[in-house]
């Protein structure tokens, strides 16, 4: 058993545990903090795949920026009454469980179709996680997609500014 596999096992179990806490806990702040912990576990999983740059961006952007905003909003709103937040509709639960079963079936088919066991990492994969290799790929082979995403984000920012600028009556 390799060290990577050991780390993978620990991180995977913790990731699932925090995800379950995030969904099942009734306190919104606990849920949000569990999600933050989950992002850390995901970053760890990326590290076991040699993708350091993605791992650190996961923490920097999701755990460090987006979730801080979420917590900020939860604290400002002070959502105390949990009874009001509880789901009352039945059909959503049924739909959600159906989707969940479908997802598990999909995962199983992929896993069984691809065969079990370790696959050797190619030497390319080790350098591809480093920032330099990633940047080279982004600005040569995937330049169009990169620019398209940049444009999309710019549109979103302009939209946010327009919405925030609107005078409150």
């Amino acid at each position: 058993m390799s060290l990577t596999f050991l780390f993978f096992g620990i991180l995977a179990v913790l990731a699932i545990a925090t995800a379950v806490i995030c969904v099942s806990n009734k306190n919104p702040v606990v849920s949000a903090m569990a999600l933050v912990a989950h992002f850390f576990m995901l970053a760890g999983l990326y590290l076991t795949l040699q993708a350091q740059f993605i791992a650190i961006l996961q923490i920097l952007i999701y755990a460090g920026a987006i979730m801080v905003l979420v917590i900020f909003v939860i604290m400002l709103l002070n959502l105390g009454d949990e009874e009001k937040l509880r789901e009352k509709t039945k059909y959503r639960k049924i739909l959600a469980s159906l989707l969940g079963i479908g997802f598990i079936a999909m995962l199983c088919s992929v896993y069984l179709g691809g065969g079990l066991g370790n696959k050797a990492t190619s030497p390319m994969a080790i350098t591809i996680g480093a920032p330099a290799a990633l940047g080279k790929e982004l600005f040569t082979n995937y330049l169009f997609a990169f620019e398209a995403i940049a444009l999309l984000l710019l549109t979103a920012i302009i939209g946010a500014v327009v919405l925030a600028k609107r005078k409150v009556d």
Partner: peptide, 25 residues
């Protein structure tokens, strides 16, 4: 010699906010 050293520090300091916000809340 971590090749993402400075990003690691930035990420960790941005996570450090949770200590203060949670203490306050």
């Amino acid at each position: 010699n971590l090749n993402i050293g400075i990003l690691f520090i930035l990420a960790m300091t941005s996570v450090g906010v949770y200590g203060l916000t949670l203490a306050g809340w």
